[in-house]
Design a protein around this nucleic acid. Structure first.
Length: 223
DNA sequence: CAGAGCGGCTATTTTACCTCA
DNA sequence: GATGAGGTAAAATAGCCGCTC
């Protein structure tokens, strides 16, 4: 026969941080005492069977119960996080007192919150880079088509009229730097003179994103 | 310099809760 | 409607690393 009823559990089990004095603490009544009000949401309910099972565990250590933060607690934590992503011990203590939580729980919340923030940021960067990759691929295709068209023409270089002197400009050709793989337009009688659209785009990309992977790329300024 | 203490970070586990068949 | 499986978010844990004293 299976029957169960629910009871409020006001005991929380936690361990002190990682390798700093590992000790399992049975923390009695460290949070607020449940009084049957709306705030009871945070108290974990457990069936009598669970309770019995926990007592039958090998070490006599019941399974840990996960605290659910109330909306008000979450709101205050978020507000605090917006002001500061890390807390000094005094701030931690004060916030814990205000929220009626243990300092360790506040600490863990901030740690997880920082991790979530970072993950979100990384995901956004990833999306951004994917879009840039797509547009660069498309640009690359266009330029390659352009190169092929020019090669297919097999005629002398087009005459470009200078807007300043109204004289024909010297012939030029496309060259690629073997080191940085940048394409440059080179006048036949001068050195490299200007960047192509692709080079300009790549430069803009690294200055726009300005973080992580792109920052670690070797500079090709020497080219 | 070695080592203890501490805080932050990352990876992982555990738990509560939700959806869906 | 009840139920169990699977998925997900987030609280909690473990352990590493760097810094300070």
């Amino acid at each position: 026969m299976i029957f169960s009823f629910f009871l409020l559990v006001n005991e929380n089990y936690y361990t002190e941080k990682g390798d700093h004095g590992v000790c399992t603490v049975r923390d009695l009544d460290i949070n607020q005492v449940p009084s049957g009000g709306a705030e009871d949401d945070q108290w974990i309910t457990a069936s009598m069977e669970d309770e019995e099972e926990s007592c039958n565990n090998i070490n006599g250590v019941p399974p840990r119960k996960k605290l659910r933060l109330t909306k008000e607690q979450s709101r205050l934590l978020e507000e605090s996080f917006r002001q500061n992503h890390t807390l000094n011990p005094k701030q931690k203590e004060a916030l814990a007192m205000q929220l009626k939580l243990r300092p360790r729980q506040v600490e863990v919340w901030f740690q997880n919150r920082r991790a979530r923030s970072k993950l979100k940021q990384t995901e956004m960067e990833c999306e951004y880079l994917k879009r840039w990759f797509g547009s660069l691929t498309e640009q690359n295709r266009r330029l390659q088509r352009e190169v092929e068209e020019l090669r297919a023409m097999k005629v002398g270089p087009p005459t470009v009229i200078s807007p300043h002197s109204c004289e024909p400009l010297p012939a030029s050709t496309l060259t690629m730097c073997p080191r940085c793989e940048r394409v440059t337009t080179t006048a036949l009688d001068k050195g490299p003179t200007k960047m192509t659209a692709a080079t300009t785009t790549a430069t803009a990309l690294s200055s726009k994103v300005g973080t992580s992977a792109l920052q670690s790329r070797p500079s090709s300024a020497a080219c």
